[in-house]
């Protein structure tokens, strides 16, 4: 099917303050890293055109303030999301412990139609720090948590070094796409619904 109509895939990045949400987004979209990012106030997003199986998509990646005090804003930013990325810092236990809060808060505020199957992706960021010596959350522990929440795909990343960022977002895009067919039905002249649905089975657990 041709890219007759470019589809928008909306992705929300959540996680504690300072885990690297803005950096991950910028690394993926602009392939840049800076130590000078300021704390995100409110929300912002970047977009990236991606191609998947002959179709073009616009990936809209939302970066939000990490402090829980601003969570009530989420209702404005989360709606219509196709995928939610939960980020923690492998060197900060608390940021991992909070993943569940972020996930639940998202489900409450975005209120997706099918919360059980809403696609999440978890990223353990900052694996580069101190050569991994300051790490406090093991990969095993993180994967176990992801498995317990309905096999959430998991990636270990370094936004600073660009490690695994591309792969992670590829998976994020695919998962966002999985969430899309529902909306595609509403497009009057979209006929390739079945084809779109087949993509669902192509998981991206890496």
């Amino acid at each position: 099917m041709s890219a007759r109509r470019r589809m928008l895939l909306k992705v929300i990045i959540l996680g504690d303050s300072g885990v690297g949400k803005t950096s991950l987004m910028n690394q993926y979209v602009n392939r840049k890293f800076s130590n000078q990012y300021k704390a995100t106030i409110g929300a912002d997003f970047l977009t990236k055109e991606i191609q998947f199986e002959d179709r073009l998509f616009t990936l809209q990646i939302w970066d939000t303030a990490g402090q829980e005090r601003f969570q009530s804003l989420g209702v404005a930013f989360y709606r219509g999301a196709d995928c939610c990325v939960l980020v923690y810092d492998v060197n900060v236990m608390k940021s991992f412990d909070n993943l569940n809060n972020w996930r639940e808060e998202f489900l409450i505020q975005a209120s997706p139609s099918d919360p059980e199957n809403f696609p999440f992706v978890v990223l353990g960021n900052k694996v580069d720090v101190d050569g991994g010596n300051s790490r406090v959350v093991s990969e095993k522990k993180a994967r176990a948590w992801c498995a317990s929440k309905g096999n959430i795909p998991y990636f270990e990343t370094s936004a600073k070094e660009g490690f695994n960022v591309e792969a992670a977002f590829e998976c994020i895009a695919k998962n966002a796409l999985k969430n899309e067919p529902d909306e595609e039905i509403y497009l009057p002249d979209t006929i390739d619904v079945a084809g779109g649905r087949q993509q669902r089975s192509s998981g991206c657990e890496c």
Binding site: S17, G18, N35, Q36, Y37, K38, A39, Q67, V92, K94
Partner: peptide, 17 residues
């Protein structure tokens, strides 16, 4: 601890230019 770490994360990214 939480408060301190939050502040420390933010001051190092406040107007550093």
């Amino acid at each position: 601890k939480e408060r301190k770490s939050l502040i420390e994360k933010d001051v190092v990214r406040t107007d550093r230019s």
